[in-house]
Simulated scan of single mutants.
Amino acid sequence: MAVIHMTFFSNVLGMTSPVTIVMPQDVQPGEKLPVLYLLHGLSDDDTTWLRQTTLEYQLAKYRMAVVMPNVHRSFYSDMAHGRKYWTYISEELPKIVKAMFPVSDRREDTFAAGLSMGGYGAMKLALAYPERFAAAASFSGALDVRALGNLFEGSEFTDIFGDLEGAKEHRDDLFHLANAAAKSGKELPALYQCCGTEDFLYNDNIRFLNHIKSLGIELTYEEEPGLHEWGYWNMKLPRVLEFLTTAAVKKDAAVSK
């Protein structure tokens, strides 16, 4: 596998931005690889998945490119007082990646996943752009942003989201995005969610799960004993990679019967 550490100037962010990419080093002429956007958590960066898990070893089983951007503590949002990280992650970065690397632009080859804040980001991509993603997965996701105020100090929460609590519908609220996705009539990505039962975000995950079920959206959910830590996420990584690369195929096969 090739591990590529890249920085480029982001016009959206107005600054250079780092990205770590893992991909096969024997790509053939004309080959287009499936691509997974793998997102980091609140206190992490674009290198943490590689440093804390067996990601590179697990990827030897798959021919895909994994793109790991750095969005700092932005919650993958166009911040109320800050930079436009949602526009960066959902629009600019995919264009840069597709222009520079041999990755597919087909929906059936495009996936998103992440942990904690990154789990939120992955579900946000899937629900906001179901026509672009075949599957998405959340590890212990921070999926109910309205309940997260106690994670931040000072004005950081409102700097990111603005008046989230005062808005009945908000562009950064996954519950609102799920409502809109369910009403859209679009085919939705295959969704996967896992969380440890001792995780401090467990109740938030259950609220999101129940809301998704109430809308009739299909979602594969798994839980087992576990905390909000890398041992749990590394243990679930093989399962998530398997889900992402097979769930969309199974869904298409079921529809065609």
Rank of each mutant, 00 (worst) to 15 (best):
S184I: 00
Y221H: 14
I217L: 12
E156K: 05
G162L: 06
L148N: 03
E222D: 11
L151E: 14
P189F: 05
A136H: 08
A167D: 08
F208L: 15
E198Q: 14
R207I: 06
L188P: 12
E156C: 04
F152G: 10
T197S: 13
L201N: 09
L209K: 15
L215H: 08
D173F: 13
A128I: 00
N205A: 11
S155V: 04
D163H: 07
R207V: 06
A142W: 08
G216T: 05
Y129H: 15
F157N: 11
E131D: 13
F157E: 13
G154N: 07
G166E: 13
F133Y: 15
S138D: 05
L177M: 11
T158Q: 12
Y221P: 04
L209H: 14
G162D: 13
Y202T: 02
D159S: 14
E224K: 10
K183Y: 00
A134P: 02
F175L: 14
T158L: 02
L188M: 09
K168T: 12
A142E: 04
D144S: 07
E131L: 11
P130L: 01
L209I: 06
S214G: 11
K183F: 00
S155A: 13
N205I: 04
N205W: 09
D204A: 14
E153Y: 01
R146D: 04
S155K: 10
I217T: 11
D159A: 14
A181C: 10
K186T: 00
H176S: 10
F200I: 00
S184C: 07
L191P: 00
E218V: 10
D163V: 03
E165I: 05
G216Y: 00
G162E: 12
A134Y: 02
F161S: 12
F161P: 02
N205R: 14
S155D: 14
I206S: 07
A136P: 02
E198I: 00
L127M: 13
A181G: 14
A134Q: 04
N210Q: 15
C194E: 09
R146F: 06
A134C: 05
S140C: 08
T197A: 07
E165C: 03
R146G: 01
G166N: 11
N203T: 11
Y129P: 03
L174Q: 06
K183C: 07
L127Q: 09
L143H: 04
H170L: 11
